[in-house]
Amino acid sequence: MDNGRPANGVAPKVASALKTFLYRIADDELIIAHRNSEWTGLGPILEEDIAFSSIAQDKLGHSLAIYSILHEVFGEEDPDTIAFTRSEKDFTCCHLVELPIGDYAFSLVRHLLFDLAEQLRFEMLENSLFEPLAKVARKVKGEIKYHLFHAVTWVTQLGAKGNEESKARTQTALNEAFPLALGIFEPGDHDDILKGEGIFEGEETLKERWLTALTSIVEEADLTLPDVQSVEPAYGGRKGYHTEHLQPLLDEMAEVFRIDPGAEW
C-alpha cells in the first residue's frame, strides 16, 4: 500500500461507490429470494410451487456470489454474517422486494418487473470494467433468462389469454407494483462515479431500457402500464428507509443463525 492504493487496487472513492452498488444488488436478490421461497408448498399448482422455489434458490445463489465479492475484494464480513446479522437500516434493498407475497398475481407481476430489470442490469454489467462483477453477470444471465421467460409466459397467460377475472387481478397487481418497481432505480451519489470508471452505465439508463422492454411485454399481455409521469416512485430503500415488512422478514430469516451461527445441514 506504499503507493497509496489499497491491496485490491481500487481507489477508495471508487471502492465506496462499488460497495454501495453491490450491496443494493445483493440485498435485492437476498430479499426477493426469501419472498419467492414463501410460495414453497403454497403454489396454485405444483409446477408453480416448484418454479418459485427454484427461482428463490437461484436468487440466493446470486446474492451469495455478490456478497462473496464484497467479502473477498473489499474485506467486508463473510456472506452469512452480512446476510443474517445486519439490522434493517443497513439493508439497501428496494421496497418492491420487501412486500409480502400478496396474491399470486402480485407475486407474478413483481417477478416480471424485478427480473426484467435484473436481466437488463446484468446485460449492462457483462462488459463492466470491474471484472469480478462482469464474471458474475456472465454467469447469471442465462439463469435470469429462465426467470423472465417464466414471468412473461404467465403474465401473458393471465392477461391476453386469461379470463375477465385473471386479467383484472393482474392489472390491479401491475398498478400496485409499478411505483414500487420504479424504486429499483433510485438514484445515488455512486452512480456518476461508476459511470466514469466504466463500471456501470447508471440507473437512469437502466430504467429507460426497462420501460421500453416492459411497454412491449405489457402490450403483448393486453394490459395497461400506468403512466410513469403520474406515479410517485417508492424511494427510500436504497438509503435504508424501509417498509414495515422488512424487519419481520429479517427476524424470520435469521432465526436459525441466531440460535446456532455455525449450523450446517
Binding site: 409446477e47 408453480e48 416448484i50 418454479a51 422455489s53 427461482i55
Partner: peptide, 11 residues
C-alpha cells in the same frame, strides 16, 4: 415448466 426437481432440469 422450465423449472424441475433440481435447478438444472425442466419438465
Amino acid at each position: 415448466s422450465p423449472f424441475g426437481p433440481t435447478l438444472c432440469r425442466s419438465l
